[in-house]
């Protein structure tokens, strides 16, 4: 949109500068190819580099927009917020700033949605909220997502991004790994489908629980996926890791993911997979 008065001559130096500033859009540099791209161009292209196809991180709401049928996403448990249960230093501030930064109440959003007309329960983790770390609220929302899907006999479609279990909630964060895995197992034992898309980065306690428990595991190109973080491994083995270690492509090579799923065709791939599991012929 062209703002009003754009072509009007500036009355003074200050006014002139203001108009110019409004139009300098911040650019991002692609870490893979160095291409300079504006935030809006990137958004338009679903946070994928226009030149080399590098997948930038993406907010949970943007993902829902990309994947779910228009206006089909009905969010659930949106009001759940974390408390500083252990009185952990700095956690209150961290929660406050994460809320402000992400615009979300916690590190995952859950809802019922339709994808290509297929009803499902979706969970999408949020990188801007403490890098999607799993505390008690994230664990509870994901558990509820699987329990609801089991009750309604719906598939679950999940998108992971996480630094792992959330340190600030101590052992209760660790327990979420067992809790979510229990709910995934019940959903699975009921004969229902769980598709998970691993996005950059998916590590730690999330990798070691529901991220790796899908019937079908997809990963976005270049995504870092692992149990231990690369820095921890390097400190342990006192060596630099080879290029490409723990990327989605590395996992594909080693047999741990079913397919790489670039964002451009991701919705179609998911619709096809959902259709292949649909009971209607």
């Amino acid at each position: 949109m062209i703002p009003k008065g754009l072509f009007k001559k500036a009355n003074n130096e200050l006014e002139g500068r203001q108009v110019v500033e409004e139009f300098v859009e911040p650019t991002m540099t692609c870490p893979d190819c160095g291409f300079e791209v504006t935030a809006s161009e990137l958004k338009e292209n679903h946070e994928v580099c226009l030149k080399c196809g590098h997948h930038f991180r993406m907010n949970a709401r943007q993902r829902v927009e990309l994947i779910a049928d228009k206006d089909s996403f009905k969010e659930l448990y949106a009001g759940m917020e974390s408390d500083n249960i252990l009185d952990f230093p700095g956690y209150d501030d961290k929660l406050r700033s994460s809320k402000a930064k992400s615009g979300e109440n916690e590190g995952v959003i859950v809802g019922e949605a339709a994808v290509g007309g297929h009803a499902c329960v979706m969970f999408v983790m949020e990188p801007e909220f403490m890098m999607g770390s799993m505390g008690t609220v994230v664990g509870e929302k994901i558990t509820r997502a699987f329990e609801l899907a089991t009750e309604k006999r719906l598939p679950v479609l999940g998108f992971t991004v996480s630094g792992g279990a959330r340190m600030q909630e101590g052992i209760l964060s660790l327990m979420q790994m067992a809790k979510t895995s229990g709910a995934v197992k019940r959903h699975s034992d009921a004969g229902l489908l769980y598709i998970v898309v691993l996005t950059d980065p998916t590590t730690g306690g999330v990798t070691a629980s529901f991220a790796m428990e899908g019937d079908i595991i997809l990963a976005e190109p270049g995504a870092l996926v692992g149990f231990a973080g690369p820095r921890v491994i390097e400190q342990t083995i006192r060596k630099k890791l080879p290029k490409g270690f723990q990327t989605a492509e590395f996992l594909l090579d080693h047999g741990f993911v079913d397919a790489i799923s670039p964002r451009s065709g991701q919705r179609d791939m998911l619709i096809n997979l959902l259709a292949l599991h649909s009971e209607e012929v």
Binding site: F210, A211, M212, E213, G226, F227, T236, F245, H254
Partner: peptide, 15 residues
């Protein structure tokens, strides 16, 4: 947290 552990699916094994 070693290279071999990651290559053989540490996360999956625990999950």
């Amino acid at each position: 947290p070693g290279m071999g552990a990651e290559e053989r699916g540490q996360g999956l094994a625990i999950a």
